[in-house]
Simulated scan of single mutants.
Amino acid sequence: MTAPLVVTRARRRRAFGSPSGYLSVALLLLFALTAVFGPMLVDKPRGLGADILQSPSAQHWFGTDDLGQDVFAQVIWGTRISMAVGVAASLIAIVIGTALGLLGAYVKRLDPFISTLVDVMLSLPLLPLMILVTALVGASATSLIVVIGLLSWAEVARLIRSNGMVVASMPYIDGAKVLGAGPLRIIGTELLPAVSPLIVVSVLLTAARAVISEAGLSFLGMGDPSSWSWGRILLNAQRSGVIATAWWQTLFPSLAILLLVLSATIAGIRYNDSRDPRTRGV
């Protein structure tokens, strides 16, 4: 058995050998399967139902809303949009943040401009800015993905830049320059693989924040009115004035948001800790 394979298996055991590790991954897989196959098994909630504001029961697991629609079906259908927006927006943020972070770490002439841009982005009030931009471009799932992704890359860029600068100062980078490797080749073949573990962690954490942003924007009426999301379920409960009485209409989508964000965050932290030699005994 080769040494890299042994190291990989050891890291996997450290990352997911604890209850928090494998439970977080199991929850993420459950959410992913629900997003893909759930709408195929559960009818889309629409129209008016006979059972209005019914509490959870064997017939309606998560109860019904003020229109008689099944809240369980709303949560299932909302899983697809919420996860799709979170994953797609995080990928946009990761691509932008990684590219700018690596350029700032290796190309010293660009570093002051990139650092200033990152500082400006981090100083902006993101939620009001997201509300403003979404209101200007129109409410839709696509606009939410683009807006959240374009406004969420700054933290990723700062993280990748700080770690990329450590790698860029290594002797083997100077050796690659001596052998004639150009900047793009060094960034693509040397710096990018070195920071790839941080990219994995950033995808999970950024996706978690994107899900929260999508839920917040949808709750404020900036989401796609033609599709279900967890934020839209909360918005409907607020508009109907049943938050204080029909507790189930807000409890279950809120729990879904909490569990998804918590599992993604714990999985990212455990994966990051598995690569830190100081936590090998944890």
Rank of each mutant, 00 (worst) to 15 (best):
A154F: 10
S152V: 04
A168L: 12
A194C: 11
E155D: 13
I92V: 01
G38M: 00
G86M: 04
A210K: 00
V7G: 08
E190A: 09
V85G: 00
A58E: 07
M83V: 09
V7I: 15
A154D: 04
L179D: 07
L103F: 15
T134V: 08
I52P: 03
F72T: 10
M170K: 13
M130E: 11
V166M: 12
L29R: 00
T279K: 11
L159Q: 05
G231C: 02
A154K: 07
L132C: 04
L30R: 01
R275Q: 14
L259P: 07
I233W: 06
E214N: 00
G17C: 10
D119L: 10
V36N: 02
I243S: 01
I131L: 06
D66A: 11
V211T: 09
L151H: 04
S240E: 05
L234D: 06
I92T: 01
G63H: 04
I81V: 15
S90C: 06
L217Y: 02
Y271C: 04
Q249V: 14
L235S: 11
T189L: 08
A3K: 13
L159R: 04
V25S: 10
W61N: 02
L204C: 13
K177Y: 11
M170T: 10
L33V: 14
F16N: 04
G86T: 01
G221A: 07
G38F: 02
G164A: 03
A50F: 15
R12C: 12
L27W: 00
R80L: 03
R109A: 11
L259W: 14
V87W: 14
E155K: 10
I269P: 05
Y271E: 07
L91M: 10
I186F: 11
P45K: 00
E190C: 04
Y271L: 15
I114G: 04
L23R: 05
L41V: 04
I173T: 05
T2L: 13
V120K: 08
F252D: 00
L179N: 11
L192H: 09
V87L: 14
G38Y: 06
Q59I: 13
L41M: 06
G182Y: 01
A93D: 03
N236P: 05
I92C: 02
F62D: 01
A256M: 04
A89T: 08
T206Q: 02
L251V: 14
V137P: 08
T245S: 14
P4W: 04
A244F: 02
N272W: 15
V36S: 03
Y106F: 15
A99C: 12
R209I: 08
